[in-house]
Design a protein around this nucleic acid. Sequence first.
DNA 1: GTTGAAATTAGTACGAA
DNA 2: TTCGTACTAATTTCAAC
Lengths: 214, 214
Amino acid sequence: MTEMSGGSSRGGGLVGRIGIGLQLDAIHMKILQVLRENGRISVAALAERVGISRASAYTRFEALRADGVIKRFTAEVDHVRAGLGITALVFVTVRQQMWKQFRAQLAQMPEVEYCAITTGQHDAMIQIRMADVAGVHALVTERLAGIPAVKATETVFILDEVLKRPYVLPSDRTPRQQSRRPSAEPTTPDSGVPLGKMRFVGAAEGRAEMRGEP
Amino acid sequence: MTEMSGGSSRGGGLVGRIGIGLQLDAIHMKILQVLRENGRISVAALAERVGISRASAYTRFEALRADGVIKRFTAEVDHVRAGLGITALVFVTVRQQMWKQFRAQLAQMPEVEYCAITTGQHDAMIQIRMADVAGVHALVTERLAGIPAVKATETVFILDEVLKRPYVLPSDRTPRQQSRRPSAEPTTPDSGVPLGKMRFVGAAEGRAEMRGEP
DNA sequence: GTTGAAATTAGTACGAA
DNA sequence: TTCGTACTAATTTCAAC
């Protein structure tokens, strides 16, 4: 292996994607499980840990890659050690019909590690990494707020990242949870939880056409 | 490796960590840059792309790993393809002095991909991956709300993940941004931004001793 | 920190079960 | 399909410079 292909999930997104392609079985899941914990494991070692032959491991490995189930391999870096010790979340309210522009602007901000469009009070949440607190302030006030598509922002700082899992898979579930039938009634089985403890926040009004691609 | 990182950030967190160990130079950064984009590249190819010899690349690579700058290598999996097409954020208000318990409970919930302690209105934000919307509801009402440490939750759904960068590094910055001096005045240089467009949210009162470790 | 050569391992291409 | 094996190419290790 010399190089590696780039990712393929250009503008897919979470919603409205249909699961065509490769049907994943238990062995595929096991491969993903191993690979997400150790992305640099050799295919030979992978085969052994999964319990299949080397040849099969190569075939499945390639299939998972080609099919986009595995999007890419990456190294997790300690941000503090790398000089970006400050992490913040910025909740953004986006002006209607300016999503395309918003996305385009984000693509040009390398300090943005993650951006998700959400339901609830705000329209998007972005996570940024900075060297210092002043940098966060500068980014939000100078660059984010300067985007016409941005109507308002709300910033919170991350004090500690308690956990970050490589990637959640259905196989991580216990058998009980795994076999949860969606059933006809999505309502909660009684569990003695005090009422009013939790709250689900729906989307704001007029947020239908946000799926424009940059 | 099951829980957080195998590395050193056991209870370190983001705040108050001192950058001991290996001093990173420009070549280290370049290595990280390549590795975060392609975690499976061979060290030989890495050496070529960075412009150093094979042996140096091995040495530096190992040093970065051993020092915890590189926490791990992982495969990024397409959640939809893997059967977890629903992503949600749950903002949690945690009862004072029950952080330890809260963390311990989270560690036992494999569907939680990420958890960060934040300033602002809520105390923590967790990201969960589920097969369906009912699963989110079930998790929040049955399991999260059942934790005594959890005072209240607020859930929003992620409609689309616009971008997810492998990992942000200082070298991603343009020279202009990179050389930002924190200076003595952390206030915003005038940039013609409409006032009142952004808002910084500080921590709630009485959140001093949240750094208790599980 | 670099080069080069040896040992090891990875990736591929077959048939056979 | 999956497995086992053999073959070729590449990588890692370790030496000396």
